[in-house]
Design a protein around this nucleic acid. Sequence first.
DNA 1: CGAAACGTTGACCGTTTTCAATTACAGTGG
DNA 2: CCACTGTAATTGAAAACGGTCAACGTTTCG
Lengths: 198, 198
Amino acid sequence: MEKHTADWSGRTTAGHSDQRSLDTGESLFRQGDPATALYRVVTGRIRLVRHLEDGASLVVWVARAGDTFAEAALFAEQYHCDAVAEAPSVVAPVPKARLRARLEADPVQCLDFARDLAAQVRDLRARLEIRNIRSAGERVLAWLRLQAKGDPPRVTLDRPWTHIASEIGLTSEATYRALGALERSGRIVRRPGTVELS
Amino acid sequence: MEKHTADWSGRTTAGHSDQRSLDTGESLFRQGDPATALYRVVTGRIRLVRHLEDGASLVVWVARAGDTFAEAALFAEQYHCDAVAEAPSVVAPVPKARLRARLEADPVQCLDFARDLAAQVRDLRARLEIRNIRSAGERVLAWLRLQAKGDPPRVTLDRPWTHIASEIGLTSEATYRALGALERSGRIVRRPGTVELS
DNA sequence: CGAAACGTTGACCGTTTTCAATTACAGTGG
DNA sequence: CCACTGTAATTGAAAACGGTCAACGTTTCG
């Protein structure tokens, strides 16, 4: 439970001077460009697209507010995908050279960085496992259970269901129907802004 | 492209003296146990299950041969989930204390560790994005494209389609049908053990 | 105040799941 | 060497579930 004055990404210390704004469709970097920084999304959505040898392309990830992306830039000479704004966005760059120097010099910060990545790995694996659940109702329920805190377990919604729906791989309609069914069967109780499990 | 005599997990150096075998159903550790090590799956499957406050449980991840799991143990006092063998399995423990000491002492190994995690993050994000593709055919094709190497792009299958099917979130039947359709439409050519994209 | 996003519900359609049956094949032990 | 067992691969038919389209009330925010 130790405290740090600054984390590796500068999330806590507000040195926002170098934030970059992007319009919809504007690209931040392209596959093959020299990797100079990794980024954190402040607002908006950044789509990462990989171009394949045969000319086809593939969406590899859509980074949303709070997500960091292109972490691998730290270990590569060039970017391995394009980064294009899906919506008006703001990103905070973390210069590669500076970060590397800091991580190499200070094992504490390096472990901090690793801890962050390990947490992401845990989170992503859980999301993947949720998608293995076929039933919309069970899927929503599983998500709720993962988020729930306290006894009785309760979830505080910090964003619209439409966002959550796409995160768990359902349409918003399917999600609303599932929520309705769960409530009708008494497995959850919905109040504005929160959901209580039972 | 530097070389290391040993990576953080001991994957390259073969110090197998302390590998542990598990029968189906046997558990490696339980939620709440003191976190003493993280592990790599040598053979078999290890299911990670989180127990929730209300008594329900949730599969958080199924680690397969080659996967490491419980990386977060490095940063926590206790395990946050159970680890149970789904099949006869062998795992290689990486003692927490020793690893921590090594990472703290040697920034190079710490960065190595971080690189490994970053690669996993990239891989998991891609898998997640693949699951956003609704059509079975397009999903299989996307997976093939991600795996493909060379020109013409070609994939070498190292495990049965049934395994791949569940990785990409389809039943084996749906996968076979998709493969059949892709082949009939001339988008792929299947030969024993490999698939060629076109 | 108006537009845009959110929340909700209905009906229909299409795809995938499910269940089932069959062939091929690899490894095992008699 | 050959039945025997289990897994992989394949195909069919029917059912179910979620997707899509559509319409509408509500809330939010500029």
